[in-house]
């Protein structure tokens, strides 16, 4: 039997409208055989969390260039937990200073990718985390 498809939501919270990076990663993940739901720019944490639940994704990837990550990223994690969906794996990307990364990891983000990260690294992360999660087995 074919392995189960990995589903990923890629979203941009916050106010910046630069989605080239997000789209680039979305296409790379598609080319790696994954189903990528792209919800576009200027998404509220509420809309992102609700879409993640409805789409039953395995991962949510957030991209942000505007500097509000310390507030918006943890907020998505909190809303997912409130909907009993903390099994969804979170990762982030964008212009994020090194010193903010530990805080985001503590908030539940499994990885933070800074600009210039090769797509292959993101793909490797997704495949590895998926294999280690209990989502890969059952459904």
């Amino acid at each position: 039997m074919e392995p189960r498809k990995i589903r990923i939501l890629i979203a941009k919270p916050g106010l910046d409208g630069h989605d080239r990076g997000a789209k680039y990663i979305a296409r790379a993940l598609r080319d790696a055989g994954m189903e990528v739901i792209y919800t576009g720019i200027r998404q509220t944490p509420e809309a992102i969390a609700s879409a993640a639940v409805q789409e039953d994704v395995d991962f949510v990837g957030l991209s942000l260039l505007s500097g509000a990550h310390n507030h918006l990223f943890p907020e998505v994690a909190r809303l997912l937990a409130a909907q009993k969906a903390s099994d969804i794996i979170l990762f982030g990307g964008g212009v994020i200073p090194e010193e903010d990364i530990p805080g985001l990891k503590a908030a539940g983000f499994r990885a933070i990718f800074t600009p210039g990260t090769p797509a292959a690294e993101v793909i490797e992360f997704v495949i590895g985390e998926f294999a280690a999660s209990d989502r890969s087995g059952s459904r």
Partner: peptide
């Protein structure tokens, strides 16, 4: 994609204004 089996599911993008409405359920 017939090559990778992956997909970009972009329809939801245009309907995201309803994402927080509990009376709407969207699945790609």
């Amino acid at each position: 994609s017939p090559f990778s089996g992956g997909a970009i599911l972009g329809d939801r993008l245009r309907m995201q204004s309803h994402a927080c409405d509990p009376g709407v359920f969207i699945r790609s």
